[in-house]
């Protein structure tokens, strides 16, 4: 189970909330202070992309953010429910295939994420996609009592 799970209606005004929550949980998990700006930006990009996919696709389901604290690492998984065309299995006219400006912005978001985060997994299927980003954590200094 995720340490913290967040679901929000696919509206631009909630992306900031997701950024703030993700940064707070990341800080608590031991992600380096210097990296928190990157976490904030990357999760914002992933959520912005998911909101865009839901809005374009007329999907009423919420966007899901999983914040996962593990030993020595912290992961954020942003899931959407937009049907993505599966490579090689694309039917005529299926999937969000319009090569318009939305697609360009979508790519810019992904470009920022891949530029910021070393460990990124992007997956997409018929029932939705996800972006999983992982950062190393440093254990809190041992407190001697």
């Amino acid at each position: 189970m995720a340490t913290v799970e967040l679901r929000f209606s696919a509206l631009p005004e909630h992306v900031r909330t997701a950024r703030l929550v993700a940064a707070a949980v990341a800080r608590r998990a031991g992600v380096d202070e210097a990296v928190l700006d990157e976490v904030r930006l990357a999760v914002g990009e992933a959520c912005t992309r998911a909101v865009g996919l839901h809005q374009t696709g007329g999907i009423s389901a919420p966007v899901k953010v999983l914040l996962i604290e593990e030993e020595k690492q912290f992961s954020i998984e942003v899931g959407d429910e937009a049907p993505h065309a599966v490579p090689g299995a694309r039917a005529d006219g299926a999937g969000p295939g319009d090569p318009d400006s939305d697609a360009e912005e979508d790519e810019m978001g992904l470009a920022v994420i891949s530029g910021l985060v070393d460990d990124v997994e992007v997956s997409a299927g018929e029932h939705g996609g996800s972006i999983k980003m992982t950062w190393p954590t440093t254990p809190p200094p041992t407190i001697l009592v």
Binding site: G44, E45, T48, E104, E105, M108, G109, V112
Partner: peptide
């Protein structure tokens, strides 16, 4: 304080 790809666009 914060700028993302939407702002860049």
């Amino acid at each position: 304080d914060f700028l993302d790809s939407t702002g860049l666009g």
